[in-house]
Design a protein around this nucleic acid. Structure first.
Lengths: 257, 257
DNA sequence: CACTAGATCTCGTGT
DNA sequence: ACACGAGGTCTAGTG
């Protein structure tokens, strides 16, 4: 089953749902009345009230109040989470060794208990200065190399979006991955993933990592994968950027209101 | 009604539930398949996948993946949230003016839609902070060293605020930098910067880094700068009900182990 | 409003 | 495992 959701489960049933969710490595969400104590890097207590509890499969454990972006109490990923029933009262405990920490929730009443087993392989793609680099590359393609002709930005593949796609002076396809800061092995792996999408392509496809600098590991991996590296500093004037953003919002405003 | 939870609502029904939740100032929780676009202080996009969406009554807006403590995308409290249906597709948009930001979620499918109107008047009680250390130092100055007399907290200098300023038993000025966690080289550099403000002082000024522990690098740098280190743990007692609190925690411990 | 500094910061990355 | 830097940091507190 992909998900489960029950209203007003009793303590015993809440206990079962949590354990089911844990064993299925699902995301567990509870709406409960509870009190909380934390002891570890710091120490805290929270008297009884209605809150939302979230337990993720990586061990992330959060207690959210009805205000603020941040959880009022939490335990980071990789902590060990387990539920227990003692004298008819439910407890959830999140623990970790290093640093030694313990988060305990005493549940007095459960309004909703649910878990959810979703599929999500996609990672966030953040573009800040990368955007400016892309503009720079399109305005001055020779900055990459003489004869380079960019064709697509944000070219969509099953493995994500290619920053810049183009061809060199000999007509070879070029996949460009931009990084605004020192690039590590992950950038190389990402570039490789994009190139895998062209594995059935009959001609050779070049992959170029463009960044201000790269780590030693990245350099080695590039060589192993037969990929290239081009050093390029991101343009740092943010005068343009600001205007662009404002334009964007003005457009958005006129569109939506 | 205190809460509502529905499984597999269609787009229209999801739309209704969100609006109901918003108007009741409830916490809204959705399990959906969605893609996300953010534009504001930075820019990001997240391809389609299963995620959890949380909207709180203070305007906090989060999108959580099945991993990590932090939301993959979010909008801080006080942002304006609204849902819309366009050509049969659900969108949720979180916006704010300053700084201009926009978060848009395109919902392809809803597994669970729920909202919850809890009661929670209680605030977290926390201890084990730098602030608690400062109080401790003023109450028990001899904890730093015998004869120490603290005079100012948050003493303003051109290079920032000195945590604690005072004099030792010989009348030498003492600059104290507090850290509630393991201190690194940055803490030492910071302390050095404060001391530079007294470079024209005719007498010798002592600089003491006070923290539970320090890194090796920090120790070396301290020696180079002729600064001192005093080991001190941040106090972990709660404000008023010290005994009550300890009892509370001891009870919790003895109950669970 | 702005500015400052701390945080159970978290998260990634390099050593 | 530890140390360091960045963050759409967030959050509380001042001016």
């Amino acid at each position: 089953m992909k998900f489960l959701s029950e209203k007003n489960p009793d303590q015993q049933r809440t206990f079962e749902i949590i354990n089911e969710g844990l064993s299925k490595k699902a995301v567990i969400v509870l709406m409960v009345c509870c009190r909380v104590i934390y002891e570890g890097r710091a120490r805290s207590k929270l008297a009884s009230g209605d809150r939302m509890i979230i337990i993720k499969s990586d061990g992330s454990f959060m207690i959210h109040q009805d205000r603020n972006l941040e959880p009022v109490n939490w335990q980071p990923p990789k902590s060990q989470c387990k539920a227990s029933l003692k004298k008819g009262i439910m407890y959830i405990e999140g623990k970790r060794r290093n640093p030694p920490e313990r988060l305990e929730v005493e549940i007095h009443n459960t309004y909703i208990a649910s878990y959810f087993n979703g599929e999500d392989s996609k990672d966030l793609e953040l573009t800040g200065y990368e955007e400016n680099m892309r503009e720079l590359v399109f305005e001055n393609p020779e900055i990459i190399e003489e004869g380079f002709r960019p064709s697509n930005r944000e070219y969509s593949t099953p493995n994500g979006f290619i920053d810049v796609l183009g061809k060199d002076k000999n007509g070879n396809l070029m996949v460009i991955e931009l990084k605004s800061r020192r690039a590590g092995i992950n950038a190389v792996k990402q570039l490789k993933k994009y190139l895998d999408c062209f594995s059935d392509h009959k001609e050779f496809v070049r992959g170029i990592l463009v960044a201000p600098s790269i780590t030693g590991d990245a350099e080695e991996l590039l060589e192993e994968y037969k990929l290239e590296y081009k050093s390029l500093e991101p343009p740092r004037e943010f005068g343009n950027d600001k205007n662009l953003t404002l334009d964007f919002f003005n457009q958005a405003d006129s569109k939506n209101y």
